[in-house]
């Protein structure tokens, strides 16, 4: 981590690993199958506080299922799922609602509520919690500013482009300052500049806000942005994006690859590029045969 307080944050993550605080997300031997179709097979991993875990894998490998399990939208057949050290595997819906309020979720297509304006979409969670309207308005504008969409506040979702919908989805997920943000293929179907904007938002969240996140994707460009770039605030208070150099190594981003419901790789992007497994090699560089 390379921003102003990078050392401190790196130490914080290191202290999590040492066990002083439980990981933000932990899967222990999680199994899930629909009838005969195995979706996840003995999946175990941990995501520390402030860490971004990029989940790679082809379609149908169980990437989005992991996110649905974290939110409690699906229940595992076996294994345990822990959020902040709390075992949520057997939680009832009411207890899960409490956990979900601490988690932000960015859906593939944005999943904005069509009947609500951008303002109402972003304010949704805050309105549900009965927060004072003045405070809601301030928070909504702060979030829309974060995704650079203040001008769209009164628009309806139908009036927005695909990229704008994803950004509003991110603003909605961030309202209420969740501890964990889950991105489910947020750049799918977007043009490269817009996809990059979405990745920059995830980088800002990671480096400026220290939010724990899981970023599900199968696009290698996203991996490049998230694992090689970082955000810093310059002397004028503006966010700048810089590339990883030789001096420093990113400690807050790791990669996990799934295949057939099993984790076939966990590590950094550098380690990923050195793996000899033909499937991974083909995934990382499609021209590889």
């Amino acid at each position: 981590m390379k921003n102003a307080d990078g050392k401190l944050r790196a130490e914080a993550i290191a202290s999590n690993i040492e066990g002083s605080r439980p990981p933000a997300i932990e899967f222990r031997e999680v199994d899930l199958a629909f009838d005969d179709l195995v979706i996840l097979d003995k999946v175990s991993f941990t995501v520390d506080r402030g860490e971004t875990r990029i989940v790679l894998g082809g379609s149908g490998t169980g990437k989005s299922t992991i996110i649905n399990l974290i939110l409690g939208l699906l229940k595992p057949d076996a294994g345990r799922i822990m959020i902040d050290g709390q075992d949520i595997t057997d939680f009832e819906d009411m207890d899960l609602m409490r956990i979900r309020k601490r988690i932000g979720m960015v859906f593939q297509e944005g999943a904005l509520f069509d009947s609500l304006s951008v303002y109402e979409n972003v304010a949704y969670r805050l309105h549900e919690e009965g927060i004072d309207e003045g405070e809601v308005e301030h928070e909504v504008m702060r979030m829309l500013q974060f995704v650079d969409l203040e001008d769209a506040v009164d628009k309806m979702p139908i009036e927005l482009s695909g990229g704008m919908r994803r950004r509003v989805g991110i603003a909605r997920a961030l309202a209420g300052d969740p501890d964990i943000v889950l991105f489910d293929e947020p750049t799918a179907g977007l043009d490269p500049p817009t996809a990059r904007n979405i990745c920059e938002l995830a980088i800002k969240l990671r480096d400026i806000e220290s939010v724990t996140s899981i970023f599900v994707t199968h696009e290698m460009d996203n991996l490049g942005y998230l694992s090689n770039e970082y955000a810093v605030i310059d002397e004028n208070g503006n966010v700048q994006f810089e590339r990883e150099g030789n001096k420093l190594c990113m400690m807050n981003t790791s990669i996990m690859m799934l295949r057939g419901g099993r984790i076939i790789f966990q590590g950094t992007d550098e380690q990923l590029r050195e793996v000899d497994d033909p499937y991974i090699r083909r995934f990382v560089s499609p021209s590889y045969v």
Partner: peptide, 18 residues
């Protein structure tokens, strides 16, 4: 039904609403 297929129901649950 439209809300289900466009993941709005999932979004609602993810936002802590039944």
């Amino acid at each position: 039904g439209s809300m289900v297929v466009s993941q709005q129901i999932d979004a609602m649950r993810a936002l802590g609403t039944s």
